[in-house]
Design a protein around this nucleic acid. Sequence first.
DNA 1: AACCCTATTAAGTATTACATATTCAGGTAA
DNA 2: TTACCTGAATATGTAATACTTAATAGGGTT
Lengths: 231, 231
Amino acid sequence: MSIDKDLFKLKPIAYTTMADQVENHLREYIIKRSIKPGDPIPKETEIAQALGVSRNVVREALSRLRMLGMIESRKKRGMILTQPDVMKGLELIIHPTILDEHVRKQLFELRLVLEVGLGDLLFRRKSEEHMKKLDAIVEREQKATTQIERIRCEVDFHSTLYDMAGNETLKRFQDILMPVFEYVVEYESKLDHTSVGSVTHADLVKILYDNNPEAYPNAMRKHLMPHLSHL
Amino acid sequence: MSIDKDLFKLKPIAYTTMADQVENHLREYIIKRSIKPGDPIPKETEIAQALGVSRNVVREALSRLRMLGMIESRKKRGMILTQPDVMKGLELIIHPTILDEHVRKQLFELRLVLEVGLGDLLFRRKSEEHMKKLDAIVEREQKATTQIERIRCEVDFHSTLYDMAGNETLKRFQDILMPVFEYVVEYESKLDHTSVGSVTHADLVKILYDNNPEAYPNAMRKHLMPHLSHL
DNA sequence: AACCCTATTAAGTATTACATATTCAGGTAA
DNA sequence: TTACCTGAATATGTAATACTTAATAGGGTT
């Protein structure tokens, strides 16, 4: 509770550079002026002069926003605000080899949570094509002879579910996280779990055909049980 | 299908700057050399010289990675790789007033999916304290007289569930998305839905006390039905 | 009115210089 | 020896300047 204690808690000092400040300033500027995608933002030199910093620093801040897809710039036309891809930031950070195991595990849990809760989106948005595709995957899986082929079917099946959900953001989220999952799957398969839950892909497809949203969550839970029991 | 058609689809040209290239180069460098958090990375001048670009460009690239929390730098010690917060990128982009309604709706759906699928994490990780906290919120909610107070209880309840799940990444995800949800909630309350699903918070708490993972998903679905029926 | 040429503008890149903070080594005093 | 002070070396942070490049606008010619 004492002030001294809190002081010690501070990391080597939260040093904020000019670029950090300009970045924040620009964010505030965009929000306060409620600038919308397509609208122009001031020139680099104007910003630099207005904030009393070198153009160098301004460019660092702008470079960051550009990376996130928040702004675009053309040679003469200046810069405009753009509708950012909300998952862009995730994509830039998530790389399996950089993340430690703890985080990878948490992301894998996140995936399990998503698939169990996915039902209502699926039932509302499934189409003929989607169902046919699932049928085809199940058939392919039953004919599969190699472990590699089975794993491929597994990935395709669940990936198709995300397609069916008709939510681009969710789909993108899944696509970004996929490489991490593969890492975990590999890790788990080394342990013992070549086994599959008591509910098969075919069972899940049947539930989708039967239009039975009530049955979906617990069916998926059972399907994922080998993973869930690991928590 | 024709090539010409595809060409037209290309945006005004995917122009890559030197900073973009250096950024990618650094990412590859980190991955290929499997540099781990805490390990040092080359000096700015070394990078600039090695890649044949100005130090300015290198600093733009480094500035981006620094923003994402992938590296840290000290005045003399040089720069080191750090374990990035996987959700940092999301946090930087997601601001309700910037996102268009379409994306906000998708994020709201994502939240619904998460809460329905959250069960298994809850049952495995709930503690005495958590349950007490939920009890207190339910009690507070029943005594509430104003709409504002009820909404606050609503937020607290679901927020506590994410706490209970014992997954920091998931919790952080929720915290970042919360402002967007508030926007949607406000939007929905304007329509008609002051009503609540047939399953109350108290019912959900009971299921948690009863250690009944099977009942959870459909109970939460019913609780969220006013929102789900909007899909 | 259609076309071409030129000037202008704003972002991208390079270079140089200096400020600042941190480490390290060396030297002095107790 | 130990402790403290001091200054040099170093790498990042910031500034200033100049030049390149591409896109736009405007003016003139046919």
